[in-house]
Nucleic acid binder design. Structure first.
Lengths: 218, 218
DNA sequence: TCATGATTAAAACAAACGTTTGAGCATAAA
DNA sequence: TTTATGCTCAAACGTTTGTTTTAATCATGA
């Protein structure tokens, strides 16, 4: 009875299968357009299972976030603090490149930790541009402390920039990142002669280089 | 009878009021979430008027696009071609900065051409990240030739970049631009001590500087 | 003045949505 | 066995969606 949740494998599997399917569909078609019938259908579960296990659709979205965003944010927070700590010990300012690397590398690397993680990363990019406020607010709420840690680190890296200018340039960088996170597969107008670079590591380096140069623009 | 559409002022006003309201609501809540009842309600028109005047909801979206996107794209195309022409006459390569200026300046300036235009620009940013394919495809279809003109101009400006690298950096820049186009009002986690820079011209310069530096990153 | 076509109004349509209900089934504790 | 609990299931709930229909209203040319 106490650990019935762990013993009842059917129940646990249903809950996780719903989480997986929701992650996939939220990322692919957005929160609003992903119906509970489509989610439970893909999960092989009953329609009522969502409201039984999670309470509501938005609670399901929160659960999808918490399962992956908390660990991911923990990694990014740790790496950002490590950048600050290292720079402090070496009595220098953190560089913009290493700051962005601490943030971007774990984010894009997350894509290679299994199919579900890849869908989740696309979901992050998708939610950042969701028109629906309830969906976006859930995400922003979990993101805001990390955003300001990133902002603060960049501020010490670029002390000559006004906070106003720094804020907007960071928004540009976030826009660039979330845009490519959203780009799953056939997204852009497809170039035929251009080989689409799927390699995560190469894309990471390119994004870091782009964002760093943009932040440091004279 | 022949020009009854022009004579009947009530009808013309209804059609345009619907276009205005649709523009506003599509930008604010997205295509999917903007119901025809909300649109016609805000326009002060009857629900059936949309299907009478436009045929369907997606046709309404197309009409909203065509009213403003065609003139805007014409301006951007002309300016991009002028950049190429000027560089050719002066026997030099176009610069990245003037290329981006030709594209970004008309886009953001469009915001100051009345309230409706401002909503439309937000809509452009919104549609670029719409999960709904039908909505996005309508936009991409009208955008694609301009995208490749921009790509080609940047390619001559940066001949040392591989097409693959250029493509991705341009995607980064587009992501940055569409992100701020979407940022109407209270969008980002609001900084209190940071004065939000609303001035279009200043924002344009900042975006051009950021994108240019990113494209030219070593 | 009358007829005609354009436009609006109100109502209804089927479909899809999130959510709720209550019965049924399994398993563990008493 | 009996009781209780966790879970699944089919069915229905009331809304809301885009679209269609039918009748009424309006402006205009003959």
């Amino acid at each position: 009875m106490i650990q019935s949740r762990d013993i009842n494998k059917a129940g646990r599997n249903t809950k996780e299968k719903i989480l997986d399917a929701a992650e996939r569909l939220f990322a692919r078609v957005g929160f609003h357009a992903a119906s509970l019938r489509a989610i439970t259908g893909e999960a092989g579960a009953n329609l009522a299972a969502v409201n039984y296990h999670f309470g509501s659709k938005v609670a399901l979205l929160e659960a999808v976030f918490e399962r992956r965003l908390l660990p991911l944010n923990e990694i990014r927070r740790t790496r950002l603090e490590a950048v600050q700590e290292t720079a402090r010990k070496e009595e220098r300012r953190p560089t913009v490149a290493e700051t962005f690397r601490a943030f971007i590398e774990p984010t894009l690397r997350f894509r290679d930790e299994g199919a579900g993680a890849r869908e989740f990363i696309a979901l992050v990019g998708r939610i950042l541009s969701e028109p629906n406020e309830t969906a976006r607010n859930i995400f922003i709420q979990q993101m805001e402390p990390l955003f300001w840690l990133l902002f603060e680190t960049l501020h010490t890296a670029l002390p000559d920039l006004t906070q106003d200018l720094l804020f907007w340039r960071l928004q540009f960088a976030i826009g660039a990142m979330s845009h490519i996170l959203r780009m799953t597969g056939k997204y852009p107008p497809l170039p035929n002669e251009i080989r689409s670079e799927k390699d995560t590591e190469a894309l990471t380096e390119r994004l870091i280089a782009f964002a760093t140069a943009g932040m440091e623009a004279s």
